[in-house]
Computed example of a mutant assay.
Amino acid sequence: MRAVVVRRFGGPEVLEFAEVPVPEPGPGQVRIRVAAAAVNPVDLATRSGVLSAAGVIPAREVLGLGWDVAGEIDAVGLGRQATSENPRSRPGERAPFRAGDAVIGLRDRIATPLGAYAGYLLLDSSAVAPAPAGASPAEAATLPLNALTAAQALDLVETTGTVLVTGAAGAVGGYAVALAHARKLRVVAVASETDEPQVRALGADEFVPRGPSLGDRVRALVPGGVDAALDTALLGLDALDAVRGGGEFVAFAAGAAPLPLRGVRVRSVWIRADGERLAELARLAENGTLPLRVAGVLPLTEAAVAHERMAVGGLRGRLVLVP
């Protein structure tokens, strides 16, 4: 099969198309015939060497790219398998994943030689969930990494009051707004002024255009500051300034966590695959709670073009590669 790999760090030109054997699933694994793979900022950070320099990726001769996958199960490894209804259930409780099932999944091991930019992908069955009904593979592929990141970030905060979401029009931020709204939190969203209608449609109660003096402008709406902040835009201290003393703050990238000034509890979200949670998110996508946003679809052969477009910025949703 053909796969996109990285053997040296640099710009989009270092993306290499390699002919590699189709992998065989082992115990507890499924092989997915890839129908769509989303392009995420972590792919660009892997390719450029940023994550390697930060000590997130150990030395490897070959690195695969692509965390999000949508496709069809092609083969199931021998041994214990998770099930389509409950990815962590015991054998015999419900029907296991079978060849032909339409699924989505998340590859959360960043240093493997093959990722979702390929014809086939092996995943632990516990990292896989049924694809949302009615969604195209391209739409479904935008869900796993970004929605799981937003959900797991919200799990880190205890507030039942007001939450600030920066980057609210982005892929992660949009899901964070929708999920926080579904939890009946008061959501203060930060994004470009032109994104206000879209962000309010996702469930934002208050809107603050991005710009200087964020803390002052948020506090004009929420005297004393918000209870928690989900800083998907990596604003750091500017977002922390909007949080009340003793509140909560979640950072979304290595090295992006600010100092815990004024007793604010600062934590970082580290995404992990979770098929059971992903199945819940897929159901929320089915009922319209989580809009699936595709910024564009390109063939796998244009992976470098997708990376160039993402680096420019301004996308609303994710670019998706199809084999």
Rank of each mutant, 00 (worst) to 15 (best):
T194D: 10
L121F: 04
P91A: 14
R80L: 12
V297W: 00
E139N: 03
A180E: 04
D43V: 01
S213G: 09
V177I: 09
A295N: 07
E16R: 13
L122S: 13
A273R: 03
E139A: 13
N287H: 09
T166P: 04
L292Y: 05
A282R: 05
L143I: 00
R277F: 03
D155C: 06
R293P: 00
L154G: 14
A191W: 07
R309E: 12
A201F: 03
V322H: 01
V42C: 01
L300F: 05
D155G: 15
E93P: 00
L106N: 11
G115L: 07
L315E: 01
A3M: 04
L237D: 14
E16D: 10
D216F: 02
I57R: 11
G255Q: 12
P323W: 07
R31M: 11
V5D: 04
S52L: 08
A118S: 14
R309T: 10
N146T: 14
R318D: 02
A242I: 11
Y117L: 01
D216Q: 13
A153S: 13
A257M: 05
L143F: 02
A99M: 00
G314W: 09
R186G: 01
A147G: 03
E158Y: 02
K184F: 02
V128M: 06
A233C: 07
P96C: 15
G64D: 07
P130Q: 07
G100I: 04
P291C: 13
P113T: 04
L281Q: 07
V312E: 12
I57D: 06
A131S: 13
E61Q: 12
E280T: 10
R309F: 01
P197I: 14
G64Q: 08
L300K: 07
L65K: 04
R94N: 05
V177Y: 05
F252K: 04
A116M: 03
I32E: 10
W67N: 11
S89P: 00
T46R: 15
V208L: 11
R109N: 05
E19Q: 10
R98D: 06
E24P: 01
E308S: 12
A178M: 04
F249I: 11
L51V: 00
V69G: 08
A251C: 05
P25A: 15
L235A: 09
T194R: 15
P209H: 14
G134Q: 06
R90N: 05
E286G: 08
V157Q: 02
V297Y: 00
V128K: 02
F9K: 06
V269I: 09
T160R: 15
V177W: 04
L185H: 03
L292A: 06
G66N: 03
D155M: 01
V62P: 00
V20A: 12
A3Q: 13
D108A: 15
A111F: 08
V39P: 00
E206H: 15
P209A: 14
D195F: 04
D241H: 05
P299T: 15
A306V: 15
E286T: 15
A204T: 05
A303H: 04
D241A: 15
D101V: 08
V4R: 11
A111P: 00
D124R: 12
T160I: 00
R186L: 03
G167H: 09
W67G: 02
L63Q: 06
R109L: 12
S125V: 11
A59G: 05
V5S: 11
F17A: 10
L202G: 07
E193L: 12
R33D: 10
V5F: 09
S213E: 15
A169T: 08
G119M: 11
A153H: 03
A253I: 09
G92D: 11
V222L: 09
Q29D: 13
R33M: 06
